[in-house]
């Protein structure tokens, strides 16, 4: 795979697209963790997830991209917005969204990024994956899920059921724990 790989620079067409989408994702993610408005954070999260979905498309993972859009952008972010409203968060900009150990957090995050990027660049500088359109379409993926991965899939459904029950128990006020 790596033998006939082209050089890292200049990037090919799909790579350029992916890099642009990645820049959008990273930038919006940065805005998510730095903005002073809760609702804006949720909206920037939508942008980030959308850019990622685009990235999945470029990587030929079509089904994952659509699931990403449906579940993350459609369900998760809406759920988060509901949470923001239910906790009566202020709509406008609010001051104290960052805690005291902000600098320690920044340090750890930068260190993490440095370590990870260093390791990745060292390890996968020459790794090249040729893209085959249609490989991540719904059909082969569905066949794989319901053939090979059917048992984890069922286990996951049980997990979802448990999460459902747990969420109900946690949010209902008339169910009390044992004294």
């Amino acid at each position: 795979m790596t033998s006939q790989a082209p050089g890292l620079w200049p990037p090919s067409g799909p790579e350029v697209v992916f890099l642009l989408l990645g820049a959008v994702a990273v930038g919006s993610a940065l805005l998510v963790v730095t903005t002073r408005q809760l609702v804006h954070a949720a909206l920037w999260l939508v942008v980030c997830f959308g850019a990622l979905a685009g990235g999945y498309l470029v990587l030929t993972a079509e089904f994952v991209a659509w699931v990403q859009v449906l579940i993350y952008v459609g369900a998760v972010v809406v759920l988060l917005l509901f949470g923001i409203m239910l906790t009566r968060a202020p709509i406008g900009p609010s001051a104290g969204l960052d805690s005291g150990n902000r600098w320690a957090a920044a340090l750890v995050a930068v260190a993490t990024a440095a370590v990870l990027v260093t390791v990745i660049v060292t390890g996968f500088r020459t790794a090249y994956a040729p893209l085959q359109p249609g490989r991540g379409a719904a059909e082969p993926l569905g066949a794989s899920v319901f053939r090979t991965w059917v048992l984890p899939f069922e286990a996951l459904s049980v997990l979802l059921l448990a999460a459902l029950i747990g969420a109900i128990v946690l949010s209902r006020t008339d169910i009390r724990g044992r004294e």
Binding site: S99, N101, A104, T112
Partner: peptide
């Protein structure tokens, strides 16, 4: 009692161990 501080320490230690390992 600040859980965030604990996690910070945890991750910092993790990074250190990773760096050391590398």
């Amino acid at each position: 009692g600040n859980a965030q501080l604990y996690v910070t320490g945890l991750l910092a230690g993790l990074v250190l161990i990773a760096v050391a390992a590398v």
